[in-house]
Design a protein around this nucleic acid. Structure first.
Lengths: 358, 358
DNA sequence: CTGTTAGCGCTTTCAT
DNA sequence: ATGAAAGCGCTAACAG
């Protein structure tokens, strides 16, 4: 049932190498220059004439030379590895972050190593061990880890560069890259209000969570714009899970004042609301409008497809990588980079049904 | 809006290191032995007395020594990195694979580097470039890449070890680790037949895909067991996407002989069938039973929760890593390791509604 | 602009 | 069972 490498002529690590590796010495010899010159070309350094540089590049190309990252790592005391710490909340989001960072990292000669934090309580130790073990040159911290004040406080004294994606706690010295979810929530809500919705509800994540607070603030901004007050919004809190969305959805739909629209702080909880609506026999969007956040795959797979908010993950991760590797050519500013998000309107929202008005 | 590291006192890679690194020389000096002895302890090699070994270990512990993986990599010509090539089909599945392989890899001192294949047509070149660039010691190929005969043929001559997760083409020299989805499909279908379903439909992925063929075969096994024939099963093909599930679901539900149960080759397509059922006003499970494969999060988030098949990802990836690193202590056998899957029964299946019988 | 000389921290090889 | 020496392939620091 199970095979062992040795028994099937299967080469395990280090067992049998065949193709000879081309070294920098070889290239230097072929090009008739010193290996230092080759090194300079490799690292895009100055100090090589254009002619020599072109010649060396040509030789490298021809020989199919690939620099040995291990040797480079040792000699330059960089590993050319970047760490990405995550906390498996939304798989598709995490993979998007990975894809975005990988694309940018590879372009700069780096690879991305993922690290999942199992126990959020011991996250700092976990991350530190990971960084020491892996030797990564820098670290990207993703939400919700990036929201943890404690983690950041414990990490800020470490000596590797880090950036965090979408976090609060602007007081920490760790630069952050976020998108403007408050503004996104505002325009989302604005549309609902324009459609005529007046009985709104918000299902947040944990009340203390950054995304919850920012998204709620955006909703309230919209209410204010329309001359409404805090009383016009029912606020309940979940924990970003499907189950919590379902529970809070049930509570809202079975309550005395059923909302005509529910804004959810993420798509998972919105899916839970769909579930609750199905249980209660409430039609979406005819009797209930629902919106989410994150534009995860589930948003397009729900029926009807869910209106959600999409963040510019590619651009955000590209910046993160550039900051970590010191390759940023962007203009200077403070330590918070903010991007704009996009509301993806789908069929989960509609003009409220008159039946709801009674 | 955007910050540059230099401008905010943010340490980019290699800019400012402070904490002194402890080297093997240091440990050797503290322990009063040669660094070779320390190296032996590090690598669990023989040739050190128990007493000396314990002493060295103690010193290492005390000093908080962490071996430099870059130096180790260069000297031993291993990178202690394992590659995981994937093809973003099902994010939660990919992350499960990652988590499983990471756990096993870390235990052996390895890290896992992911690599997404963008263009499936040029997958081989892409993978080869990745492996050369990253210097990974071995490669794990995941589905659907692992099903590609062409990719495997192009890769089999490379000189790094590889394993594939869930692939067909047993003729190639690349060992594979799979689970028994045929048997799982059998027991799934068996249950439907026991429940009294007689009008079954199967929505496969592409007809030529391994999972499609294996799962279909399992269904047919069950039919045979119950004395039914191929005529008792309607077979249609999708492409594992939500959209294709929806299309085929609509076709089946609007067709002349509406099935009482639809077995889908994955959860995404089952979600599409839910969508189709909603459109057609068909109640699940009262009027239609649906099952999926993979037990992805969507399975539990659909309403009603979807019966699906869960594969032992952890165990499979642990074996994959052991095979790549040559650390396998399992008994020898042929080059296919097969695990058993588990049917996770939820509320998407029920005894067929009499109305359907006419 | 180009080259030389030393290492990076560890493993390997071969002594003892 | 232990240790000394010689690199791994590259970059750093300095020379010309």
């Amino acid at each position: 049932m199970v095979c062992r490498p040795e028994d099937v002529g299967f080469p395990a690590v280090g067992s049998g190498m065949s193709k000879k590796t081309i070294t920098i010495n070889e290239i230097a010899r072929l090009a008739g220059v010193s290996k230092k010159s080759v090194s300079r070309v490799l690292n895009d350094e100055q100090g090589v004439s254009d002619k020599t540089r072109a010649h060396i590049k040509h030789i490298m190309q021809e020989a199919g030379y690939e620099p040995d990252r291990r040797a480079r790592a040792l000699a330059s005391s960089r590993s050319l590895l970047l760490g990405l710490a995550y906390n498996n909340r939304n798989p598709s989001y995490i993979l998007d972050l990975l894809a975005g960072s990988q694309r940018a990292a590879n372009a700069l000669g780096y690879e991305v190593v993922m690290h999942q934090i199992a126990d959020e309580g011991a996250a700092a130790d976990d991350v530190i061990r990971f960084m020491r073990r892996s030797g990564c040159d820098g670290l990207i911290i993703t939400p919700p880890l990036s929201e943890s004040a404690r983690l950041l406080a414990d990490l800020v004294s470490e000596d590797w560069p880090m950036v965090r994606v979408a976090g609060d706690h602007a007081d920490f010295a760790v630069p952050q890259i976020r998108y403007n979810d408050r503004t996104a929530a505002l325009s989302l809500t604005n549309q609902l209000l324009k459609d005529g919705h007046r009985e709104l509800a918000f299902i947040g994540g944990p009340a203390a969570a950054g995304p919850t607070k920012r998204r709620l603030a955006g909703i309230q901004d919209a209410l204010t714009l329309h001359g409404l007050t805090a009383d016009d919004l029912t606020i309940v809190y979940g924990d970003f899970t499907f189950e919590s969305g379902k529970q809070q959805g049930l509570a809202l739909l079975q309550g005395s004042t059923r909302p005509s629209a529910i804004v959810c702080a993420n798509d998972e909880m919105a899916a839970g609301v769909y579930h609750a609506a199905a249980v209660c026999g409430v039609a979406i969007p005819a009797e209930l409008s629902v919106t989410g956040f994150d534009d995860s795959p589930v948003a397009s797979h729900l029926y009807p497809p869910l209106t959600s908010v999409r963040q510019p993950v590619q651009a955000m991760m590209a910046l993160a990588v550039q900051m970590l590797t010191g390759d940023s050519k962007r203009p200077p500013s403070d330590r918070i980079a903010q991007f704009d998000a996009e509301v993806v309107a789908r069929e989960s929202t509609a003009v409220p049904h008159p039946i709801n008005a009674d």
